[in-house]
Amino acid sequence: MIEAILITLSITIIIGVVLGYASIKLKTTGDPIIDKIDKILPQTQCGQCGYPGCKPYATAIANGEADINQCPPGGDDGIHKLADLLGVEYKPLNAEHGEPKPKSVAIIDESTCIGCTLCIQACPVDAIVGAAKQMHTIIEKECTGCELCLPPCPVDCIDMQVIPETTENWKWKYPIYKIEQQN
């Protein structure tokens, strides 16, 4: 009787110690896969994928609810990276969610702005400053080019301006032809 109790106790204690040690040693903070996906996404928070932002879309991909080809700002490159990370086949961008566009910023034509604050409420990254009945302006450095401020503007004073290529932001381009397509 005593032996039975002692042995059951020792088994459970050993298991408890091992599992406790393992849970400290193998601790995971948050969900690593969601963070990894989120890092690949362009963080424009534009919502073209059908989710309210990049993080919710990353969560949906991780849960298998969303496909990897719903992010136009990320482009082909982003889909390739996601396919590599998740070990799935590459697929072309889903045209339902829009076409990839050159990176641009929004510019407010300050002489026509009536100070309605509607675009401020629409901006997902708080890149617009201004107050009621005062003209608004855009912090170019913060603007992700998501175009969410265009539809609410009642006087159409916001324009998207493509960022011109300068020596500051120029990057090597990927080869136009894939090697296996050449012969």
Partner: peptide, 11 residues
């Protein structure tokens, strides 16, 4: 172990 090392498989 799986959650730490193979998060996608875990999901």
């Amino acid at each position: 172990v799986m959650e730490k090392n193979y998060p996608y498989l875990y999901r």
